[in-house]
Design a protein around this nucleic acid. Structure first.
Lengths: 207, 207, 207, 207
DNA sequence: GATGAATGAGTTTTCATTCAT
DNA sequence: GATGAATGAAAACTCATTCAT
């Protein structure tokens, strides 16, 4: 196992890095990039200010690392979710479900991730946008190709550009995640998304 | 008309206020709340820094005024859009169209408005959220009640909670506005939204 | 008079700038660039920290302005000193005298000026070097051409490259300025320089 | 020989100390005291930061050791240079030559040494000044006494205070070392210094 | 109302120094 | 002696806000 081949030092270093990131997500998610100071993060993570700079070049870099690492994790999960099932409909269901699971287990990331992908991210001057949006765009295209294949296989009717179907699906799931975030009891993600997707699918499916 | 009953002084004051806000939207929309300084706005509006404070208590207040006034304008248009037509389907069509018209004519506002309604608005410590979200929520309820009435009138099938239908509709239109914003030529709002709504409606409509 | 055509505001601004520079020379000259903080300068000049940044982009810029402005003043004086007299020997005497007058009246500048021209100026990353050294080099060339002319006119023997004569003259005057700086009573600049120059001239002159 | 009586441990320690100092001269000479960090020196010397503190109390101490040790070496050479020859003129020639040899072989030290002796050394708060300047002053006095002896022996005319002759000699050699440093090809130290000294000596010598 | 210079608290970032291993 | 992660004080710089004119 590679984990155990790291020296103690290296393992500690990784742990500390993780601790910093964990303190940071919470703060950023709650107050936003500009309302969180490095001191604040350091304090929450129980390190000195200077220590943060051993791990991250600057505040922006810390934020980027944070969002990008989570985005990559989500991405992997999402890709796995759409690759496993055979059937196109199952792929989509699997995605919707995985997305729900990922974010309901990572609540602080929801705001950050959406701010960076769909949102008006003014947070970071540039750069982050670039990488994370590339990931996002890449995934949209994969979703689109599922719709495309489904259409070719005559599983779906050809009612719209597959890319737009992907965009629509993504935006609907986001909307219901937000509802869930605001009031989890009242707006359970799974059931709600389910119903909306039915509207979608009933019409999309060739009987 | 009340406008003409204002003194010259008052008219000038209003004009100046408007000039400041106009300079501000552009800057905020381009760089975000925290990357725009009051001096920058003053310069763009061709006033002295101090003058801004004759019109707005502070930076936050200026931003709030900006977003709220636009939000109110949009809401008026949107409400008018859903009140005029008789038929529920027409109401919804009218809303979608009006939304498109409003924002394509107010590009800089798109980012700000979405950041505040759906987005992870960390921009402002608090308060703005409150008022603008109330407006937004109010409108969602109106949309919901259109669906509800439609269902009652048997125009629509009862496939989902009307509120969720409203949320879905809103999120879809947003998604297509964003696409349009990114590449207006390639992703014309009207046509795209049209197609997606058809998926919606075909299934929603009782034949 | 152009001075009086400045608005009161402009005149005040210039005065403030000057006050800042005056506080700064003393501090820099005493402790060196890196041992003086902007706060310290601000305090000594009786302004707020931020105010310094209205006048100078950054600490380096403030330092540059300081040294360069003085260097330019000295330059003008020095050039005037060598242009007025007819005779080559008088030109050189005039320079030596003017240099003494300038720096004995601007004690804090001695260290700064020498640090930047002849010294190992590590103070500033770059740039200042450039401009100030250009001035300095320019002046050395003027001095050299005085020697050259003197040689052509047979006032001087042709005992060495005129440029090296200039360098030698400059370095000797510096050395005696330093001595004076360390102990003005014991090492009066004028008399000492006088004697040394005699060594120079006696051999340089064609009887 | 004492060297071989050191234990292996002690020899290693000395070697490490030397390695650190060697890394440090280069860096200090290139960038100056304040633009070099201890971590940088450690890295260049291939030691850990903490190790530097086993050898030197602090950064200043390291710098002092560096400059002082070199200064002492130079002084020994210089003293040897003026002690060996019999004749006063030869002593001076020997000094000028030795100085050239020492610094052309120790380029990085030129800047540091001059900064500390003649220059506006703001580098170090204090203390270094003291010791190194004492060495320097001591040497100037030795030079002065050579001139004095020469005068007594009627080798030299009594044209100026011997101390000032020493200062002049030193400042001229420095000036030509600087020229050489800037462009070694164009300004060869030996030849240039030679010519300038002739001006000096021709007049100084009693035929 | 308009001006814009001045303010100074607050933020990011650096780096000499320490210390547990 | 060697390591290098952690420290935290100190510095540069920004900018919302004030206020005398």
């Amino acid at each position: 196992m590679p984990e155990t081949q790291l020296t103690r030092r290296e393992r500690e270093r990784l742990r500390h890095r993780k601790e910093i990131l964990e303190a940071a997500v919470e703060l950023f998610s709650e107050k936003g990039f500009y309302n969180v100071s490095m001191q604040e993060i350091a304090q929450k993570a129980e390190f000195a200010t200077g220590t943060l700079y051993k791990f991250f070049e600057n505040k922006e870099d810390l934020y980027k690392a944070l969002v990008l690492e989570q985005a990559e994790k989500f991405h992997e999960s999402a890709i796995r979710a759409i690759e496993e099932p055979e059937d196109e409909i199952d792929k989509i269901r699997s995605y919707v479900e995985t997305k729900g699971q990922f974010f309901t287990a990572n609540i602080p990331m929801i705001r950050l991730y959406f701010a960076e992908t769909r949102g008006a991210s003014f947070n970071i001057k540039a750069g982050l946008d670039c990488e994370i949006r590339k990931l996002y765009e890449d995934f949209l295209l994969r979703l689109a190709s599922i719709f495309e294949t489904g259409i070719k296989k005559k599983r779906f009717k050809k009612i719209a550009d597959p890319y737009y179907l992907a965009v629509a699906l993504d935006s609907l799931t986001n909307a219901f995640l937000f509802l869930w975030l605001e009031d989890p009891e009242r707006h359970p993600y799974r059931q709600n998304v389910e119903k909306i997707l039915q509207i979608f699918f009933k019409n999309l499916l060739n009987k």
